[in-house]
């Protein structure tokens, strides 16, 4: 995290609240419904993901928040029986358009999973993989540069700089998850999707990642699915509450937590359902 300051110069690292950026829409879901075979998992969701902000998706298990997240970079495509209707756009482009290449989409919309899943390769290779397959680097020096800068942004470089050639699977859980974040941001995506990134981690590792998320939103638009309402309150500027496949309420995080409009939202936040 110190590395970050060095890189950017101290003037740019202002508190997020003090920077006034007019929110522009990075991704937009319009009337999104998702079906697994005959079962409908998501019912006509309309949601805007604002640029350079953290949007958190909350709700009880099975409410469709992960399904919505996975439809944002078409990870649902890998499930044979899954079908998506409605429209999801990235910078105004329909991502389910026939002419859109899913490989390119996933380079632009990166993803971090619930369980840290580094490749069983070296730390270096883990981070270098994305830039390599997307043809972003051609020389060894370029690869090294991108690996180092990604690891720095993920706040992992200082801890692993002496063992870049050791297996990524040898790191601790929290380090592995930060390695996965470094791997995801190495392709310089516009949007970063995080599916309960801290659920497999201890509180200290969780705190480090939350801090990291806050720093990352300077450069990336982040959507995070979380089970922890405290986490949603801590890291996000916008919160969307899902229940039984429907988007119940969305808005500025502070408002959702202090003054929810909907009764169900209120119940969930008070711990009465979920």
């Amino acid at each position: 995290m110190n590395a970050m300051t060095e890189n950017k110069g101290s003037t740019l690292v202002a508190k997020p609240d003090q920077v006034v950026i007019p929110p522009t829409v990075a991704m937009k879901g319009e009337d999104v419904s998702v079906f697994y075979g005959a079962k409908q998992a998501l019912f006509g969701v309309n949601l805007e993901i604002e640029r350079n902000r953290v949007t958190s998706l909350i709700g009880p298990s099975g409410c469709g928040k992960s399904t919505f997240l996975r439809s944002l970079n078409r990870m649902n495509d890998t499930i044979d029986i899954c079908r998506v209707t409605g429209r999801i756009t990235l910078d105004g482009e329909d991502i389910y358009d026939k002419n859109l290449d899913v490989v390119e989409l996933r380079a632009r919309v990166g993803m971090v999973f619930q369980k840290p899943n580094p490749f069983p390769k070296s730390i270096f290779e883990n981070v270098a993989y994305g830039p390599k397959i997307h043809g972003m680097v051609s020389t060894k020096a370029e690869t090294e540069e991108i690996v180092v800068s990604s690891l720095r942004k993920a706040g992992l470089f200082e801890e692993v700089k002496d063992r870049l050639n050791e297996p990524g699977t040898g790191l601790s859980g929290g380090q592995q998850q930060r390695l996965c974040i470094a791997r995801a941001i190495a392709t310089k995506p516009e949007v970063l999707l995080m599916d309960e990134p801290c659920s497999a981690l201890d509180p200290i590792a969780t705190a480090i990642i939350e801090e990291l998320i806050d720093e990352l939103r300077e450069n990336f638009t982040i959507v995070i699915v979380t089970h922890s309402m405290q986490q949603a309150a801590r890291v996000s500027q916008k919160t969307a509450f899902f229940h039984l496949g429907k988007l119940i309420e969305e808005g500025v995080t502070e408002d959702i937590f202090t003054n929810p409009v909907n009764k169900q939202t209120q119940d969930y936040i008070m711990g009465r359902i979920g």
């Binding site: 996933r106 990166g110 999973f113 580094p118 993989y129």
Partner: peptide
């Protein structure tokens, strides 16, 4: 081969051929 590896590779924007040749077959 654990599905998480496949998921990680697809999530990186690897094509099916890359997922298989770079990750699944070697493992």
């Amino acid at each position: 081969v654990p599905p998480s590896i496949r998921e990680a590779a697809y999530g990186m924007g690897a094509s099916p051929q890359q997922v298989i040749l770079h990750h699944v077959l070697p493992l």
